[in-house]
């Protein structure tokens, strides 16, 4: 009996240790970046363009660029994702077509981000002649997060009680109106949470925008969706690997990393909080 409990203690110890290691890894990374980055964060850093061959100045164009790309991506992925999810949950639950679509979505979700970059380059930049631009980058990122949005929207739609649909249809309301006026509003919080998580993902991606949208350096802000932009993740990569003053610009690098983390994890945190609030306030 004693050896049985000894094994149990050993195992539980290992299990707790693994949880601790993971937590410490996250906290360690965040604390380290925060400790080194916060001194770089000044009003000027956030609002100015880089100067002196990107060894001084701020990161404003990269912040703006990331915002453009992210908003563009969600404009592509949200409508497409919600419509797809409605089709899968409300119109074609079973059947060959929905099976094919599900397999397609799963496969799309598994494509590595750098392959999305290659696709964006081959299709949007070269074939459709968008050039390296906000448009090409946002479309590439939009496709990248599409499976996430579809998954979240599907889950939210499935969580809407069947009785709501029945009640509406039994009143002689058409299927389309039932979906649009009853099901979709009830699913909206869940869909928005998914969308926000998608935004966070898009904001942090580097590989898909390297060949499709990201510029090494631009002195001016983009004027149209056919312009290249700087972006926070790519800016970090460039400063950390490609400059001639890698050590000198460390403070800038830490600052940029901190801004990106704050942006991405801030977005995730909003989604997590929103989700738990909706769960608590759910009235059905």
């Amino acid at each position: 009996m004693r050896s049985r409990y000894f094994k149990q203690r050993l195992f539980f110890g290992a299990v707790r240790l693994s949880a601790l290691v993971i937590t410490l890894a996250l906290l360690g990374i965040l604390a380290y970046i925060l400790a080194h980055g916060f001194r770089a964060i000044t009003w000027e850093f956030l609002t100015q363009s880089p100067t002196d061959s990107m060894t001084k100045g701020g990161i404003m164009p990269a912040i703006v660029g990331t915002l453009y790309l992210t908003v563009g991506a969600i404009l592509v992925a949200l409508p497409l994702g919600v419509v797809s999810a409605i089709f899968l949950t409300e119109y074609a639950k079973q059947g060959a077509l929905s099976r094919i679509i599900r397999v397609g979505v799963n496969c799309l979700a598994g494509v590595p981000s750098v392959v999305f970059g290659l696709f964006g380059l081959g299709f949007f930049v070269v074939f459709l002649k968008f050039g390296s631009s906000i448009l090409a980058g946002a479309l590439t990122l939009g496709i990248l997060i599409l499976p996430t949005i579809i998954g979240a929207a599907e889950e939210a739609l499935k969580a809407v009680p069947q009785t709501f649909r029945e009640a509406s249809l039994a009143l002689g309301v058409s299927k389309w109106n039932t979906i649009f006026r009853i099901v979709l509003p009830s699913a909206l919080p869940g869909i928005l949470t998914g969308a926000i998580l998608g935004v966070g993902r898009a904001a942090g991606e580097t590989a898909p925008i390297m060949f499709t949208a990201a510029a090494f350096f631009t002195a001016v802000l983009p004027k149209s969706i056919f312009d290249e932009v700087m972006a926070l993740p790519y800016h970090i990569y460039v400063l950390a690997t490609a400059g001639t003053h890698i050590e000198e610009t460390r403070p800038l690098q830490y600052g940029t990393v901190l801004v990106l983390i704050a942006l991405v994890l801030g977005i995730d945190l909003i989604a997590i909080i929103m989700r738990s609030m909706f769960r608590r306030n759910k009235r059905w």
């Binding site: 949880a19 993971i22 937590t23 890894a25 996250l26 990374i29 380290y32 970046i33 998580l197 966070g200 993902r201 904001a203 942090g204 991606e205 580097t206 590989a207 993740p233 790519y234 970090i236 990569y237 950390a240 690997t241 460390r250 690098q253 990393v257 990106l260 983390i261 991405v264 994890l265 995730d268 945190l269 997590i272």
Partner: peptide, 22 residues
């Protein structure tokens, strides 16, 4: 812990690459 893991999943890869470098 669930939130920790979710946030870990949200860390941009370029950030982890940077951390690994420095």
């Amino acid at each position: 812990l669930k939130s920790v893991i979710e946030l870990l999943a949200g860390l941009p890869s370029v950030v982890l690459g940077f951390f690994g470098m420095v």
